[in-house]
Design a protein around this nucleic acid. Sequence first.
DNA 1: AATGAATGAGTTTTCATTCAT
DNA 2: CATGAATGAAAACTCATTCAT
Lengths: 209, 209, 209, 209
Amino acid sequence: MAAPARKTRPQPRRRPVQGRAQETVDAILKAAAQILAKHGADAATTNAIAARAGVSIGSLYQYFADREALITELVRRHVEEMQAVLARALAGLGDRPLPAAIEQLVAAITAVHQVAPRLHQALHQSLARGRLDAIDQFEAQLEALVAQALVDRVELAIADPGLTARLLVRALGGLIRTTLRREPERVGDPALAMAMTGMILGTLERARR
Amino acid sequence: MAAPARKTRPQPRRRPVQGRAQETVDAILKAAAQILAKHGADAATTNAIAARAGVSIGSLYQYFADREALITELVRRHVEEMQAVLARALAGLGDRPLPAAIEQLVAAITAVHQVAPRLHQALHQSLARGRLDAIDQFEAQLEALVAQALVDRVELAIADPGLTARLLVRALGGLIRTTLRREPERVGDPALAMAMTGMILGTLERARR
Amino acid sequence: MAAPARKTRPQPRRRPVQGRAQETVDAILKAAAQILAKHGADAATTNAIAARAGVSIGSLYQYFADREALITELVRRHVEEMQAVLARALAGLGDRPLPAAIEQLVAAITAVHQVAPRLHQALHQSLARGRLDAIDQFEAQLEALVAQALVDRVELAIADPGLTARLLVRALGGLIRTTLRREPERVGDPALAMAMTGMILGTLERARR
Amino acid sequence: MAAPARKTRPQPRRRPVQGRAQETVDAILKAAAQILAKHGADAATTNAIAARAGVSIGSLYQYFADREALITELVRRHVEEMQAVLARALAGLGDRPLPAAIEQLVAAITAVHQVAPRLHQALHQSLARGRLDAIDQFEAQLEALVAQALVDRVELAIADPGLTARLLVRALGGLIRTTLRREPERVGDPALAMAMTGMILGTLERARR
DNA sequence: AATGAATGAGTTTTCATTCAT
DNA sequence: CATGAATGAAAACTCATTCAT
């Protein structure tokens, strides 16, 4: 109780404030993601987010300039996670025989869209046109990646790898998104995966130069 | 200008009572569509809609119980228009040789998604989950229609016409939507249409029983 | 079709328009009374009244300067009716022996409050302070009437007939209004009437000079 | 005043967090009561209440879910106050000789109705049928209380204490309310109080079994 | 830094009233 | 005169954001 040198912070315990701040930021973003996924964009008010995160509304604004910034960061992390999943799911793709590689590709695209489907949906809804940038950029990367893979597989003799890659990525992405919305239980269905594989193979055949 | 002239009704005021009202309703819906398409869902406040329609806010509520009802009617008309476009674009599909039929299908799906792409996008965004019903039902109809066409073409010998139809419709739809969002100028591109045709042909080949 | 002297109203056909106008006014007031009684003051919008009366809102404003005027007229008629009921119910009061006269008074006050209890209630609620004038004036008349009756019955030897009349009229009125609100089914109860008679008799005894 | 002073909390800020909020709530309710009493129910809009309370409309909604909740709380406090006044005014009633007890009862009922007569009136007006519950319940309690007092005074030999109590409470209540509305200055008049006492005594005599 | 009370512009919606036909 | 479409002021309520403590 002598209270000598109160709180002098002798040694800055490894990111003492840093650590707490990080926790707070994480809690806020997690709360935002949960509300968005569970109750939709309209329910994700800043006050609701702060409440669910267990912090005061003031603290929320300590870490995010405004609501917009919060959502942007949420998107950023979501994309980051999708990228991580993608990287893992595509590892070793180039080394596999074609049929196996395509199966892997289908699995990868499916996996990417399942990272947080409800949240993904809500973000699409909540994001005004022009703010989908981050997600769109991710898809563009994916398209480039697939295009490169097509180029690398010389034996495929794809006439226009860029076009074909766009075609495939967008078609499969839209297919999965629509299915997630209308028949979410079907997304894992092996029959669907097989059909997708067939679609890719058929498309590649028709895309030869 | 003496008394006798009275009662002659020089020009029979067209739709004297209903007319004005109908014009007002149309103006409101048109304004709503424009704002949604141009500025997004958040900008489509009832006040903004009334202002752009050139009517008072009171008039808006004379014809629509609430904002929700207005959007619902907008969706209804949009779907109606898509259906009309689709019917026209698919006329005579069954009588054509396969390649021509597929070209027509691609053109039809493209046309449907181009009815009012910005509005379509905005409606998707504006509609809370579960209220996309009308649009989803339309897509379901389209899937059923394509499935039937696959059955009718006995020579195609499609193993699972339902699955294949879903696959094709959702994939093409997603492809077009994504392209509309990211590269709207490409949607009419013949190269894209050809690639889509190839995708369909390849997919059908791989879907034989 | 000659249109000579348009609308000179040659002989003012016995209130030709008058008659129809009167019907319209009656319909409007009846509609207002019904809505007020059945759905309360908030539901009695001018548009709702016009609709229920089967006339256009424009016509309503043809006959009433504003909503206020309509309600005022409604109150006037209501009071008029209460006065008619009262006059009938009090006929011959002075000629009866005291006990019978008091029973008649009780019956009269009860009858007056039952003219249109729901409407009465709604009017009380709907009328801002200061606009209860008409009803208050009616009660004042009733008090004066009872005071005179007390004076006429010399044998009662009431010390302050004015005070006693006020006391009785207000007490009985309040009693009936409260009972109407809380136990409407009891208002006709003979036991209650007897108790009220007892109250009056006891009060008169105690009010002797 | 150097740094060490920190944490000494010179004056323990009274109710540091709750305090401000409580003051705001009180100010809002006080403003509502004033407007209701002075200008009537229609004038008591949420905006007007907030303005008079000197707080923003947002603050009002921070503490009350909606206008309804605010009015409900106002009624609750008003009834609470009436109950407190009543309890004080009736203390020791049972121990007094009859005449004194009746004088006390008259005084008590008068006092209760004078707690905030204008507000009381306005609340009656503002509350839609069926929402007077709280006030009606209070009156019912009062009736029960008086009925019990009549039972306790065996010498009175009241035939139907319940009926007589209802009769008295409602009659006196109505009398006072009407007088408050039409001749507010008379409510304290000793002559009126004496007349009321006479009315009670007379009524009790006539109510013997 | 954290807190949460306070803010107020902006949104939806209602309803008395007007006025062109 | 009747009609009903149109008006717009005003009410209830929300929510992103600020700021004193």
